[in-house]
């Protein structure tokens, strides 16, 4: 059976680096970047993209609604 694959896109300039998505992520996909955005925040990013299942937990707890989530529909043959 194929694993469900997902991905997130973070609106980097909107992100304030609060880290709530990092603890909400059940697969430890998200990390705070070493780099900073225009406001000086360590923004959230996928540190381990292969682990993402597109569960939307991160987007749901994000106070600034800066996460968009995509999930690949599993193929029926798998």
């Amino acid at each position: 059976m194929g694993k469900v694959r997902g991905a997130i896109v973070v609106d980097i300039e909107r992100c304030k680096g609060c880290g709530l998505c990092v603890v909400a992520c059940p697969t430890d996909t998200i990390v705070l970047a070493d780099e900073v955005n225009g406001k000086g925040y360590h923004y959230a990013k996928m540190g381990n993209p292969e682990a993402c299942t597109g569960c939307t937990n991160c987007a749901m707890v994000c106070p600034d609604s800066c996460i968009t989530v995509y999930r690949l529909k599993p193929e029926k043959s798998k």
Partner: peptide, 17 residues
């Protein structure tokens, strides 16, 4: 599967209102 293949409009599951 590349991340770029997942980030497509048809796979969208959550975006801000």
């Amino acid at each position: 599967i590349d991340v770029k293949d997942i980030i497509k409009p048809e796979n969208l599951v959550f975006k801000k209102s």
